[in-house]
């Protein structure tokens, strides 16, 4: 079986993650959707690394992980700050962006 199969898998996981971002009102769950999308990308990168026989894809995936870790730290901090201020983490609540 070709490693290309994992790229298809990555596409499906990415779509599920994006749908979760659109559908879920809980900020943490939406955030997990984002994480899933990142991981799908990582999977694709690793698969490409395998297909091309080069390590750069894996390095890229590694970098993505590092950046994702930083992102998670900051994102969760933001969620906590919002929760402290509003007692909710629903994405529909802060409709102050309404024009």
């Amino acid at each position: 079986m070709n490693a290309m199969a994992f790229v298809y898998l990555a596409a499906i996981l990415f779509s599920i993650g994006s749908a979760a971002v659109l559908l879920r009102r809980n900020a943490i769950v939406a955030f997990m959707g984002v994480e899933l999308m990142l991981n799908a990308a990582n999977l694709a990168l690793v698969a490409f690394s395998r297909l091309h026989g080069q390590l750069d894809g894996q390095i890229m995936a590694f970098f993505v992980m590092v950046v994702a870790a930083a992102e998670v730290v900051v994102g969760l901090a933001i969620i906590i700050a919002v929760f402290r201020a509003r007692q909710t983490i629903s994405l529909d609540e802060p409709a102050e962006l309404k024009g």
Binding site: L91, D92, P94
Partner: peptide
């Protein structure tokens, strides 16, 4: 166009997608 700015983050995400 003001109505487009409905304040719903998820709508914005939908627009992006």
């Amino acid at each position: 166009s003001r109505r487009l700015q409905n304040g719903q983050v998820r709508s914005y995400a939908a627009t992006m997608l």
